[in-house]
Amino acid sequence: MESAAIQISNLNFQYAENSGVIFKDFNLNIAVGERFGLLGPNGAGKTTLMNLMTGVLQSKSGNIQLLGKEISEDKEVKKLFGFVPQFHSFYQELSPAENLEFFGAWAGLNRTEIKERTKELLTVLGLSNVADKPVSKFSGGMKNRVNLAIGVIHRPKILFLDEPTTGVDVQTRHAIVDYLKELNKAGTTLIYTSHHLTEAESLCTKVALIDEGKIIAQNDLQTLLQEHKQDGLEGLFLNLTGRSYRDS
């Protein structure tokens, strides 16, 4: 039996007592080694789910396990995963190397490991020639690559990616997707959200469509397309979530 990278059981969550329920008795299993796409319209609960899986938010009840360990303040659990947030969540005044030095140390790496990983990541992501320049002067695509490098510096076993290619050009998007596939081949489980359905089609081996805090479809991509008689993910998406606006 395939072991679970993520196991969510009976999850219940709402932001405040008087606000609406986001997840009610929510369950989800993601196997080790998958490239898993969490897709859904605006306000479906994708980012909230990602924040719950990474411990940024705490659930009211239910259980979330990463590789068999409950998500908590436990440092060992936090070492298992990496997080690439939707926004450029790092220090714009610092260079990529300085950002990696800081976040690497906070991820638990020592000085030597940080040095090696920084060199490796900046080369792979095409940032070597700007390693010591302040990130504030970078283009959106370069910033996204810095964001990604920070998330993977400690070689996490699970990588959460919240819209990692938002606002970047086609070249950068392809470079990021190719790099993520390489990471997955090396054993990293990817949990990915995006509105770029063609990108999701090319990256994900399995997808779950979420709407209003519920999974409305979940399987490997080809099976889903066959089940719903669709040629592509976009048709499947519209077929299952409808065409009306989702202004949250």
Partner: peptide, 10 residues
């Protein structure tokens, strides 16, 4: 910037 959130996951 979300740096606080990122630090929370470390």
């Amino acid at each position: 910037s979300g740096s606080f959130i990122r630090l929370k996951t470390l």
